[in-house]
Simulated assay, not measured.
Amino acid sequence: MVIVDQIKQALYLDGDEDDSLIKNYITVAEQFVKNAVGGSDKFFEDKTVQPLYDMAVQSLAATYYQYRLALTDTQLFTNNATVNSIIGQLRGVYETYEGDSANENIDTSIKPSD
């Protein structure tokens, strides 16, 4: 679970003026990553998945904070390589996770023929 203090530390922010804004960015980043990968909350709480998920959320929330203005004098092309690479990894892990879950429900025992 990503907390406001982690984002503030990553952005070198002091004070608490923007805490509610950062909290909202964390919520939006969590939903973005979950929607991009798919899966249930159980998947994202898995001990092997959670560090990747948290880092993607932290990186994306920090990006939202840094680029929060919609109007600029110059054209920006934001490409969050960290988030993109972690989402790719999470998609691969999710495919394996789903495959393993499906295989648990398959009866592989040998049954005598009639």
Results as ranks from 00 to 15, higher is better:
residue 1 M to P: 09
residue 3 I to T: 11
residue 4 V to L: 13
residue 5 D to E: 06
residue 5 D to V: 09
residue 9 Q to C: 12
residue 9 Q to N: 12
residue 10 A to L: 08
residue 10 A to S: 09
residue 10 A to W: 05
residue 11 L to Y: 01
residue 11 L to K: 01
residue 13 L to D: 01
residue 13 L to R: 04
residue 13 L to K: 03
residue 17 E to Y: 01
residue 17 E to V: 01
residue 18 D to A: 10
residue 18 D to K: 00
residue 20 S to N: 05
residue 20 S to L: 04
residue 21 L to G: 10
residue 22 I to T: 03
residue 23 K to S: 14
residue 23 K to D: 15
residue 23 K to H: 08
residue 23 K to I: 01
residue 25 Y to K: 06
residue 25 Y to E: 04
residue 26 I to H: 03
residue 27 T to A: 11
residue 29 A to D: 01
residue 29 A to L: 04
residue 30 E to T: 09
residue 31 Q to D: 14
residue 32 F to Q: 11
residue 32 F to N: 09
residue 38 G to M: 02
residue 38 G to T: 03
residue 39 G to E: 03
residue 39 G to L: 07
residue 41 D to V: 12
residue 41 D to H: 10
residue 42 K to M: 12
residue 42 K to L: 12
residue 42 K to G: 11
residue 43 F to N: 03
residue 45 E to K: 09
residue 45 E to W: 11
residue 46 D to W: 02
residue 47 K to S: 11
residue 47 K to D: 08
residue 48 T to L: 12
residue 49 V to S: 03
residue 49 V to T: 03
residue 49 V to M: 01
residue 52 L to P: 07
residue 52 L to N: 04
residue 53 Y to W: 07
residue 53 Y to T: 02
residue 53 Y to P: 01
residue 54 D to W: 00
residue 54 D to Q: 04
residue 55 M to V: 11
residue 56 A to P: 02
residue 58 Q to I: 11
residue 58 Q to G: 11
residue 59 S to W: 01
residue 59 S to C: 07
residue 61 A to M: 06
residue 62 A to G: 06
residue 62 A to N: 01
residue 62 A to S: 12
residue 64 Y to I: 06
residue 66 Q to Y: 11
residue 66 Q to T: 15
residue 66 Q to V: 15
residue 67 Y to T: 11
residue 67 Y to Q: 13
residue 67 Y to G: 13
residue 69 L to K: 15
residue 70 A to G: 07
residue 71 L to M: 10
residue 72 T to V: 10
residue 76 L to G: 06
residue 77 F to Q: 11
residue 78 T to D: 14
residue 78 T to V: 15
residue 78 T to W: 11
residue 80 N to R: 04
residue 81 A to V: 14
residue 82 T to P: 03
residue 82 T to W: 00
residue 82 T to D: 02
residue 84 N to Y: 03
residue 84 N to D: 12
residue 86 I to K: 00
residue 88 G to R: 02
residue 89 Q to R: 05
residue 89 Q to G: 07
residue 91 R to K: 12
residue 93 V to E: 05
residue 94 Y to C: 02
residue 97 Y to L: 04
residue 97 Y to C: 00
residue 98 E to A: 15
residue 98 E to W: 01
residue 98 E to Y: 04
residue 99 G to V: 04
residue 101 S to C: 14
residue 102 A to H: 14
residue 102 A to C: 09
residue 103 N to W: 08
residue 104 E to Y: 04
residue 105 N to Q: 14
residue 105 N to R: 08
residue 107 D to Y: 05
residue 109 S to F: 10
residue 111 K to H: 12
residue 111 K to D: 14
residue 112 P to N: 13
residue 112 P to C: 14
residue 113 S to Y: 08
residue 114 D to M: 09
residue 114 D to G: 11
